[in-house]
Amino acid sequence: MAKGSEDAPVTIVEVSDYGCNHCKNFNVETAGLIEDLYVKPGQVKWVVMPYALGPQTAPAATAALCAAEQDRFFEYHRRLFDTQGDPDFMSAASFRQVAEDSGLDLEAFNACLQDNDYNNTVQENIMAATALGVNSTPTFFVNDMMIRGNQPLTSFQQQINAIVGVSDGG
């Protein structure tokens, strides 16, 4: 799931778990700033890898991928974090409510959820992330550089500026 210019010199991959409060905090506090400062101007391509630290949160990653079918992934992604802390936020009913709030076609979304279309994709994401050394969330890859944890904007700025500076100079 990606947004931003395909030609951007920097690609940031976000590996998040929808049950992780630090991932929520990152998305509330920092993701929007990076989007405004770097994604919209075309310097950064932002990629999200729906991931799950355990089986409890895997259904949320599957639901997010169902939203991606309707090109509403990022809207759903943000709203799903907003439901964190609700008693039933990992239930199908909650996923459907978020889908409704995100303006998704509910019939198609429900069919996708029921068919478990993306269970394997989530498992593949987990295996791929584990192979890259991910064992906590949020984890980011700024091009090849791994950043662990809910880091402030300045951490990303340092990496981005270093890469863009090298690109400009080279």
Binding site: D17, G19, C20, N21, H22, C23, K24, N25, L53, G54, Q56, Q84, G85, N135, S136, T137, P138, T139, R148, G149, N150, Q151, P152
Partner: peptide, 20 residues
């Protein structure tokens, strides 16, 4: 600054985090 870990049993975020 912290992160959630793969182990569901050792997570200060769930216990003492701002949203816990």
């Amino acid at each position: 600054i912290d992160a959630c870990t793969a182990s569901s049993w050792d997570d200060c975020g769930k216990v003492s985090g701002p949203d816990a």
